[in-house]
């Protein structure tokens, strides 16, 4: 994929795109740039609140569950699976774009279906993780009484341990910073909404491809634009993964 541009070519003389891209693709890039700042603002505000707190829960301790594994301590295992699913779906998307360049309709359809499957798998994993965090309760000392609470946007059971206080064989803690749940559900929710929109767009692309729309148009550029959006969703996950699960 090389572009052969003669040296000294004048881009700004009018009558053509000085960016050498179509209007639609440029607008998709500018939208993604603005969305980068939206996610950036969310993640930076999370960082600000987090460093301003004297205590913050250890992600290795919070995200240690895996479906069907009971109470086994498997830090980061499930989120690694989610990350792998999303990287894989990015690969299948770029393969769909590649087939689109070759105008191979059957290839585009095949790889779009794999990408849609990957998107649904990721959303399913996220639904499980949210359910586990909200319903999985831990003993917390609130106003002198031990209560079982889960992680929500207004409650956080992952505070510092109360020395020597046990409840049903579990260490009792004090409530952790509320911002933990608000930022986690807010930002992963906003990212999940992007994944959902991406899956919907991919389903639309699948039916448009099947209907022969791009063959009639003579090019598959629409697959490239949706592909840009899908890779952006993967790109955001790189930083959500970093900020919530690794650091």
């Amino acid at each position: 994929m090389s572009t052969h541009v003669p040296a000294g070519y004048k881009w700004w003389t009018g009558g053509k795109s000085p960016y050498n891209v179509s209007y639609g693709k440029l607008m998709m890039w500018l939208f993604l740039l603005s969305d980068t700042f939206t996610f950036g603002a969310l993640l930076i505000s999370y960082g600000t609140i987090r460093v301003s707190q004297p205590y913050w829960p250890d992600p290795n301790h919070v995200y240690n569950a895996f479906p069907l594994m009971g109470h086994a301590d498997l830090p980061l295992a499930f989120v690694s699976l989610m990350t792998f699913i999303l990287i894989m779906s990015s690969v299948t998307m770029v393969l769909a774009v590649h087939e689109g360049h070759k105008r191979n309709r059957a290839g585009v359809e095949k790889w779009l279906l794999w990408t849609i499957l990957g998107g649904f798998m990721f959303l399913g994993c996220q639904a499980w993780e949210w359910t586990h965090l909200i319903t999985g309760s831990h003993p917390v000392l609130i106003d002198g009484v031990v209560k079982e609470i889960g992680t929500t946007i207004s409650m956080n059971p992952f505070g510092p341990a109360v020395p020597g206080l046990m409840h049903d064989g579990h260490q009792v803690t004090v409530p952790g910073p509320i911002g933990f749940g608000s930022f986690f559900f807010g930002i992963t929710g906003f990212h999940g909404f992007h994944v959902f929109s991406g899956v919907m767009l991919n389903i639309l692309m699948y039916f448009w491809t099947r209907g022969g729309r791009f063959d009639r148009l003579g090019h598959y550029e629409m697959i490239e634009k949706v592909g840009l959006y899908w890779h952006f969703v993967d790109l955001v996950w790189v930083f959500v993964f970093l900020c919530f699960y690794l650091i």
């Binding site: 052969h4 795109s17 891209v21 179509s22 148009l217």
Partner: peptide
């Protein structure tokens, strides 16, 4: 795909 593009990618 568009007249705006001067040098198409291979």
């Amino acid at each position: 795909s568009s007249p705006e593009i001067t040098f198409a990618h291979e």
